[in-house]
Design a protein around this nucleic acid. Sequence first.
DNA 1: TTGAAAGCGCTAACAT
DNA 2: ATGTTAGCGCTTTCAA
Lengths: 330, 330
Amino acid sequence: MGVTIKEIAVICGVSPGTVDRALNHRPGISEKTKAKIIEVARQLNYQPDYMARSLAKGRTMTIGVVLFDLYNRSFAQLMNAIEAESRRQGYFVDLVLTNKDPGNEKKCIEHLLHRKVDGIIIFAINYGEAFDRYLKSLNVPVVTVCNRVSGDWSYIGIDDRKAMKEAVQYICGKGYERFVYVCPPLSYQGKTNIFTQEERFAGCLEGLKEFGMDELPVIVTDKDYVGAIGRMSFGGGEPRTAIVCSCDIYALEVMNHLKGRGLRIPEDVGLMGFDNIDVLKYVTPALTTVEYDVEQFGLQAVRCLVEHIEQGSAAPVPLLPYRMIAGASI
Amino acid sequence: MGVTIKEIAVICGVSPGTVDRALNHRPGISEKTKAKIIEVARQLNYQPDYMARSLAKGRTMTIGVVLFDLYNRSFAQLMNAIEAESRRQGYFVDLVLTNKDPGNEKKCIEHLLHRKVDGIIIFAINYGEAFDRYLKSLNVPVVTVCNRVSGDWSYIGIDDRKAMKEAVQYICGKGYERFVYVCPPLSYQGKTNIFTQEERFAGCLEGLKEFGMDELPVIVTDKDYVGAIGRMSFGGGEPRTAIVCSCDIYALEVMNHLKGRGLRIPEDVGLMGFDNIDVLKYVTPALTTVEYDVEQFGLQAVRCLVEHIEQGSAAPVPLLPYRMIAGASI
DNA sequence: TTGAAAGCGCTAACAT
DNA sequence: ATGTTAGCGCTTTCAA
């Protein structure tokens, strides 16, 4: 194995404790012996054993990350940023993926606890008071990202409601008469965490209302949302329709469908997404969407969590900025 | 903290050693005491401390993963699969990203070594004998994925050369007269690992040769490959041209450019990619490409690595299957 | 079949 | 300023 603190102690003719003081720059040691020990350690290429240190200190220098998966582009970017900032701060990163299975999430978290991670960054899929209590019972600092669990946890995200509201008002301004809103089922409350989705939906309603559109949008939450859209007519004598999707992925699927029907976007029907995932740049027509900086999410999440870990608490992180990208699809 | 083996020992009126025997199903213990201990452990919700175990056993149950980044869709999928299989096998996953910076790669690996990972799965960016020696000096099982380092390491991938060769021959069969091959710089050998890229390029040449095309393709390795393509003429009186890209990302960028010039694909110029990244389904015209199962890469990589870790060696993994996807771009 | 004891490598409290 | 010692929680060898 590697060189140990003990061996260095023997070589330098001092005790392990003294070596520890030198290597960890702790007080109670003369400059001279300290310099000597550090030099010897350097020459022997001493590498501390984190396992041993963890056991002794009760801290692992590890951040646990819980995500749905890495398929969604945004998650991948998020993870990318988390990894970078964590390593920069000297932390290891343990990743677990829940695959959007609420039942799996606790198992994933437990996995991290076995590993004795110092803190957890979580894009939660579970929700509600029970889950909130569960998280609290873990006695580990937690930072939530993208999906709020409760007001008791640090949260990193944007003001989804306001963003969607502004987007919808922008669309209204373009003269659309009918609205279709496509999003995942919003009825799973308490089972699946759809905080962000709910916020966006609420924003949509607010936007319409404030603009004076009394009619509610047609809400599509079918798993087979493409099929549902397929049963609607657009263009021709129909009222001018905008399909607002709660995320780009949905919008792209819908776009494929509309193209397949030979409908022109936005002439026959308008389309809008949310997230500005990077593949949009290869798609025609350019999708109108809302952009925000996921990397910033990762960065802030790590910083906030490290603050929690090292200070015992952290200042609340303000909601991050976003902006609408006016494409050609509306 | 949690319940310890010692506490259980006290409760059961036995020694810690006996508890260990029971909990780890090791011989030398009566069924009766074993059952009792296990029951008590269950009731107390005993969770072993992996840190302590690691220190005692010299094994961390952790797999280190070294990737470029997670931006590339394939990497994300790969990581997804690695995480799933690792956890299934009881291993933790530590992720480090090199961001394609060769100088960063060793730092990343060292990070994992500090963590005392039991083995490493690496999509290597470095290359050559020196790096090979370096890896060997680590004394840790390593499985290489997508980029071979040397014949001495287990490798998971497809036969890129053969796949590209077949693809090129398919294109030849479509009557194209001129070939443009777009790929990253192939001259960094020894500095950046472009094993896979070299294989694909070699496959392209072989394919052309065997088909009887004597003329070499125009090879574009500029960083600004789009600019280079921009200086070429297609359609009209030009010879019928196929642009073969060594990966889908390049092909999509080129497609954007060609569309911008008002060129029709494939009427004015043919286009081909490689990898079948999932966003292709949102792109028109459908890109002709080569598909393989990245998830399988992850699965096999983990299995192979675990075999190395637990058996000390592993059977070589055969090259995985691939298939051409005939889109509408050729 | 079970117990006792010595580590794994590092940290930290207490002596000197 | 430095040494000594007792752990952290688990594994493992050697005795009993």
